[in-house]
Design a protein around this nucleic acid. Structure first.
Length: 692
DNA sequence: CAATTGCATGCCCTT
DNA sequence: AGGGCATGCAATTGG
C-alpha cells in the first residue's frame, strides 16, 4: 500500500501528514517520518515489531486500513506468541478469542465480557468497548501455529464486530517472527494513551478503538507514570528494557491479566533459559515484586499484589489460606503460608513465614523477588534480583553498608542479627512515605526523555546488517531483528572498560540523559543537592538505562574523570572524549555512519539556530541600545562584573557570547552533548558542567 | 515481655 | 471516589 495517514497528528511539529513507509533507523533509533513535516513521528519509536512495514503492512479486508496503525500509535504494545511470532496485543487477543475460524480464514467475534471489559466499562468508554474483547492468553495455544503466525486482524468499522484475516504471504511479518522468543513476551512503553476526545471519522474511530483495546486489555492499570508526550520514566524504562525480558502474560494468565507493569517479571530470556536449564524444568515467570521494608522485615509477611495473587496463586476461600511450596535458586525448598486478610471489603494477600527465606537469600528492602512456576506442577520458584541501587537510592550509605556487610560468608545466625539491625536502620532511614515517594517522583522526572533521546535508546541488534531501502529518495535501514532497547549491560567493573564498551552514540545518550537530569535539578532546586545524593540518583537513572543487571551499585558509572576533561566522566560522549588522542579513527568528512550523520544534522541545526539567535540578539541589542542609551558607560562595560559570569547565560536570552563559548572549548567542533533544540539549556549545562 | 497475629488506617494511585 | 498496599497497632500467644 502507499502511505499511511498520520491520523493522530502527533508529528513533532504538531502537523498532520503522511507516513513514509518503513521503519527506519534514524538518528540512532527506529522511527517513522512524517512526509509532511519530515520529522520522526513522535510515537513511532520503540516499536520494534513493525519495522518491517515495507513488507509487513497489511490492509484489513474490511476497512482497508493498515492493520497495525494502532500498534504504532500506541507503541510497543505487542506480544510474542508462545509458538514464536509476534503481533500487536489487540490483534493477538482478538485472535485468541476467536473460537471458530470461518471459511477462508475469516471469522467474526462474538461479544463477550470479562474482567478486561469490566475495566474498560468502568472507564466509561461505553459502547466502543464492546469491541474490546480480551482473551485468555492461555488460549493462544489452542490456535494452530500456522494460523497464529499468519494471522492478522483488524477491527471492523462496525461496533460489535471484529474481523480477522490470515495473511500467509506476509513474509515480512514472518521474518519478524523468526527471531522471537518461544516464550510469551510483551513490551510496552506506556506513554501514549489514546485520546478519545476528537474522533473525526470512522477510520480514526477504528484506530482509537484499537488503541483503547490495547490499553484496556493489556494494561488497564497502567499507570500514571505515563505522562503526555514522549516522555518516559523509570517505570517505562523498565518496560522498555523488557524488550529483552520475558514479560507476562504467560500461558497461565487465565485471563487475569490485569497487572501493574511493576509486577511484570523482567527476567531475560537468557536468564530464563538458564534457570530452566538449572532446574531442569520449564519455568514460567509469573510476577515479581520489589520488597518493601515491611516485606523484608522481621515480621515475616510478604504482601502480595492482589492481582498477582489472584492470577497466579491458588484460589483460597479461607483466610487461613494454604501452604505453598517454593524453591529458591539454590535449590532450597520453602513452605510459605499463602493467605489473605479481609481488608476494606477486599482482600490483602500475604505470604507468611518468609523471613527465613528472605534472610537466607539476604534480601533487603528494594530487592526484587520474582515468582515463577515450575511447569508442569504446582511448585513455585522464588527468585530475586538485588536492587541495582539499593534502597531505591534513598540511602546510599546504608546501601553500601549492607552490601559490604552481607557477604556470602555471613553465617545465617549472625547474618540474621545483622539483617535485623540493618532492617531497623533501613526502616528508619527510608523515611516517611511521602518523602520516599517524593524522591521516587524526582527520579522519574530524571528519566524523562524527549522522543529523540528515547529514540537513541533503540539500537540495531548487534551483528545484524541492515538492508538499505530507498523510499521516496530517503534511504532507510531495515532490520530483520527488532531493535534492542537500552544499553548493554556493563559487567566489567573497570570504568574505563565500561566506557569503552559504549558506542559513541550510547555515550552521547548517557551523558545527555545525565544532562537532562542535571538541568532539571538545577532548574527545580538549583541549590543544594548533596553530591552523594545526586550521584545516587544519577546511578539510578544510569541503572535504568543500563538495565537492571548492573551487578553492584556504583560499578560502572560512579564518578571518575576521564583524562580528557576533568569534568568528563566515563561514558562521556562529547566530541572531545570520543576522539582518540592520536586523531586516528576519526571519521572522514564523507562518512555516513549514524553518528556522523547525527553530527552533521545537529551541526546544521545548530548553525541554523545560531544564525537565528544572532539575528534575534542583534535585534534585541539594537532595541536595548535605543532604550538604554541613557545609562552610563560603567554599567554597560561592567555588566558582568562582580558576578559569576558563568551564570550570565541563566538569565535572559541566548546571546552571541554564549554561542561563542562553545566552539573554542571543543576545538572548533560541535558539542554533541548539546541538544540542538535546547541550546539555550544545553549551552548552559554543557559549558558550565563539562567545560569549566 | 517479646514476638506474632489480625486487622485498621491512611496515603497514593487510578478511574 | 474507590482500590491497593505499606505499615501501624492492639490483641493474642508463648517463652
Amino acid at each position: 500500500m502507499g502511505v499511511e495517514v498520520c491520523m493522530n497528528k502527533l508529528c513533532k511539529d504538531g502537523s498532520s501528514g503522511e507516513w513514509k513507509k518503513g521503519w527506519s533507523l534514524m538518528s540512532g533509533g527506529f522511527a517513522k517520518l512524517c512526509n509532511k513535516c519530515g520529522l520522526a513521528y513522535e510515537n513511532s519509536v520503540f516499536c520494534d515489531v513493525f519495522h518491517r512495514h515495507e513488507a509487513g503492512w497489511r490492509e484489513c479486508s474490511n476497512c482497508n486500513k493498515p492493520i497495525h496503525c494502532g500498534c504504532i500509535v500506541s507503541r510497543s504494545l505487542f506480544e510474542y506468541h508462545d509458538s514464536g511470532g509476534i503481533g500487536c496485543v489487540s490483534c493477538i487477543k482478538i485472535s485468541h478469542f476467536c473460537p471458530d475460524t470461518e471459511k477462508s480464514n475469516r471469522f467474526t467475534l462474538s461479544t463477550k465480557h470479562n474482567a478486561s471489559d469490566r475495566y474498560a466499562e468502568r472507564a466509561g468508554k461505553g459502547n466502543l468497548l464492546q469491541l474490546c474483547r480480551t482473551a485468555e492468553v492461555g488460549e493462544s495455544s489452542r490456535w494452530p501455529h500456522a494460523q497464529r503466525d499468519g494471522m492478522v486482524s483488524c477491527n471492523g468499522p462496525k461496533s460489535g464486530e471484529v474481523k480477522c484475516q490470515f495473511n500467509k504471504e506476509d513474509r515480512g511479518y514472518l521474518n519478524v517472527m523468526k527471531h522471537s522468543s518461544p516464550l510469551s513476551m510483551i513490551t510496552t512503553s506506556k506513554n501514549n494513551r489514546p485520546t478519545w476526545g476528537e474522533t473525526k471519522n470512522i477510520d480514526e474511530l477504528s484506530l482509537k478503538i484499537s488503541l483503547f483495546q490495547q490499553e484496556q486489555q493489556s494494561h488497564p492499570l497502567l499507570t500514571k507514570q505515563m505522562k503526555n508526550g514522549a516522555t518516559m520514566n523509570l517505570e517505562a524504562n523498565k518496560g522498555l528494557i523488557s524488550h529483552e525480558r520475558v514479560g507476562w502474560p504467560h500461558a497461565d494468565m487465565k485471563g487475569k491479566s490485569q497487572l501493574l507493569s511493576r509486577y511484570w517479571p523482567r527476567i531475560t530470556n537468557q536468564e530464563l533459559e538458564k534457570l530452566s536449564g538449572d532446574l531442569k524444568s520449564t519455568i514460567v515467570p509469573l510476577f515479581e515484586k520489589v520488597l518493601s521494608p515491611s516485606d523484608a522485615g522481621r515480621i515475616g509477611r510478604l504482601v502480595l499484589p492482589k492481582a498477582c495473587a489472584e492470577a497466579f496463586l491458588p484460589p483460597i476461600s479461607q483466610s487461613e489460606g494454604v501452604p505453598l511450596q517454593f524453591q529458591d535458586l539454590k535449590g532450597n525448598e520453602w513452605t510459605f503460608q499463602f493467605r489473605f486478610w479481609p481488608n476494606n471489603n477486599s482482600r490483602m494477600y500475604v505470604l507468611e513465614g518468609v523471613t527465613p527465606c528472605i534472610q537466607a537469600l539476604q534480601l533487603n528492602a528494594g530487592d526484587t523477588v520474582t515468582f515463577s512456576r515450575i511447569e508442569p506442577g504446582e511448585k513455585f520458584v522464588l527468585g530475586f534480583r538485588r536492587a541495582t541501587n539499593s534502597m531505591d537510592t534513598q540511602d546510599a550509605a546504608a546501601s553500601a553498608h549492607s552490601n559490604g556487610i552481607l557477604t556470602k560468608d555471613t553465617n545465617l545466625s549472625g547474618g540474621t542479627n545483622i539483617l535485623n539491625s540493618l532492617e531497623k536502620k533501613k526502616t528508619r532511614n527510608i523515611g516517611p512515605k511521602t518523602k520516599r515517594l517524593h524522591i521516587r517522583s524526582e527520579d522519574s522526572i530524571e528519566l524523562r526523555l524527549t522522543w529523540e533521546e528515547a529514540q537513541d535508546f533503540l539500537c540495531p541488534p548487534p551483528s545484524v546488517k541492515p538492508n538499505l531501502v530507498t523510499i521516496e529518495d530517503q534511504i532507510f535501514e531495515e532490520y530483520d531483528e527488532p531493535p534492542v532497547f537500552g544499553r548493554r549491560t556493563i559487567t566489567n567493573t573497570c570504568q574505563s572498560s565500561a566506557s569503552e564498551q559504549l558506542s559513541p552514540k550510547e555515550k552521547e545518550n548517557l551523558l545527555r540523559t545525565r544532562k537532562v537530569s542535571k538541568k532539571r535539578k538545577s532548574v527545580e532546586k538549583r541549590k543544594s543537592m548533596e553530591p552523594d545524593k545526586l550521584s545516587s540518583l544519577e546511578a539510578l537513572a544510569s541503572a535504568a538505562i543500563l538495565g537492571d543487571n548492573l551487578a553492584e551499585p556504583g560499578e560502572s558509572l560512579s564518578a571518575g574523570a576521564t583524562t580528557k576533561h576533568p569534568r568528563h566522566r566515563p561514558g562521556c560522549s562529547c566530541i572531545v572524549c570520543i576522539q582518540p588522542p592520536s586523531g586516528q579513527g576519526k571519521h572522514k568528512p564523507t562518512c555516513t555512519c549514524v553518528p556522523c550523520e547525527t553530527v552533521k544534522r545537529r551541526f546544521n541545526t545548530y548553525m541554523m539556530r545560531r544564525k537565528k539567535n544572532k539575528s534575534e540578539s542583534s535585534e534585541a541589542a539594537a532595541f536595548q541600545n535605543d532604550q538604554m542609551n541613557s545609562r552610563d558607560e560603567a554599567d554597560t562595560s561592567g555588566g558582568a562584573s562582580g558576578q559569576d559570569t558563568s551564570h550570565s547565560s541563566d538569565e535572559g536570552s541566548l546571546n552571541e557570547g554564549q554561542l561563542e563559548v562553545v566552539e573554542p572549548n571543543v576545538a572548533g567542533q560541535l558539542d554533541l552533548n548539546c541538544h540542538p533544540n535546547h541550546e539555550d539549556m544545553e549551552m548552559d549545562t554543557c559549558d558550565k558542567t563539562d567545560y569549566d
